[in-house]
């Protein structure tokens, strides 16, 4: 029994959703990041959910099912996502094509200025099976999906087996999506501080006047 309810009740500061064809290793990727170990998982039914703390902020990571029959639900679970991970298998051409045909359109349900990170999985299998998707193609896709981003390209090639690039994927997302947030709240806070001081000051002057 996990206590997801307790944490689930908290309003998450960021919703991250992972999309991609069946068997590209979406659940494994999340599990690798959250638990730090490699594990194999049966097909995800519908969706599952992991809550992660990042510098006092709550991040809800939604894992979706890759099978086509869950397409409608995946769309639903994408709602209000601040970031999406579009995962494909670097050794499976079909998974990359499916990403373009089936999954990129799901991004419409997410936040308008969402971050879309293209992630190639199973990089450890390249030697054995050969690379089916060149990095350049993924870079191109990442650029297309994030027309507003110019200073970096959100694309990663990862391996959940040996941990290659896994942390970077999530850290980049949190860094990009939450840091700006953090600055904003900080600014708000400092404004409040100043006005509070002012208030105190005016109170004092009032007291002085009374005598």
């Amino acid at each position: 029994m996990t206590s997801q309810d307790v944490t689930g009740k908290k309003k998450a500061d960021l919703k991250v959703v992972i999309l991609g064809a069946a068997n590209v290793g979406k659940t494994t990727l999340i599990h690798r990041y959250a638990k730090g170990v490699f594990s194999e998982h049966p097909n995800t039914l519908g969706a599952s959910f992991t809550l992660k703390q990042w510098k006092n902020r709550n991040v809800a990571i939604w894992d979706t099912a890759g099978e086509e029959r869950f397409q409608g639900l995946s769309n639903f679970y994408c709602r209000q996502a601040g970031a999406a991970i579009l995962a494909y298998d670097v050794t499976e051409r079909k998974s990359f094509e499916e990403l373009k045909t089936r999954f990129t359109q799901l991004l419409a349900a997410a936040e308008p200025n969402r971050l879309a990170v293209v992630v190639g999985t199973k990089h450890d299998l390249v030697e054995e099976k050969g690379k089916a998707v060149e990095r350049e193609e993924a870079v191109l896709l990442a650029k297309q999906l994030n027309p507003n981003i110019s200073d970096y390209i959100p694309i990663f090639e990862t391996s959940s087996l040996n941990g290659l690039g896994v942390t970077e994927v999530f850290e980049t997302i949190f860094e990009k999506c939450l840091r700006f947030d953090a600055i904003a709240t900080h600014l708000v806070n400092s404004t409040i501080d100043l006005s509070a001081q002012k208030k105190a000051g005016s109170n004092n002057s009032k007291n002085n006047c009374a005598c």
């Binding site: 309810d5 689930g8 039914l45 519908g46 969706a47 599952s48 639900l73 709602r79």
Partner: peptide, 10 residues
């Protein structure tokens, strides 16, 4: 709000 806050039941 048209969102989901919990994973689905099987």
């Amino acid at each position: 709000a048209g969102m989901s806050q919990r994973p689905p039941l099987q």
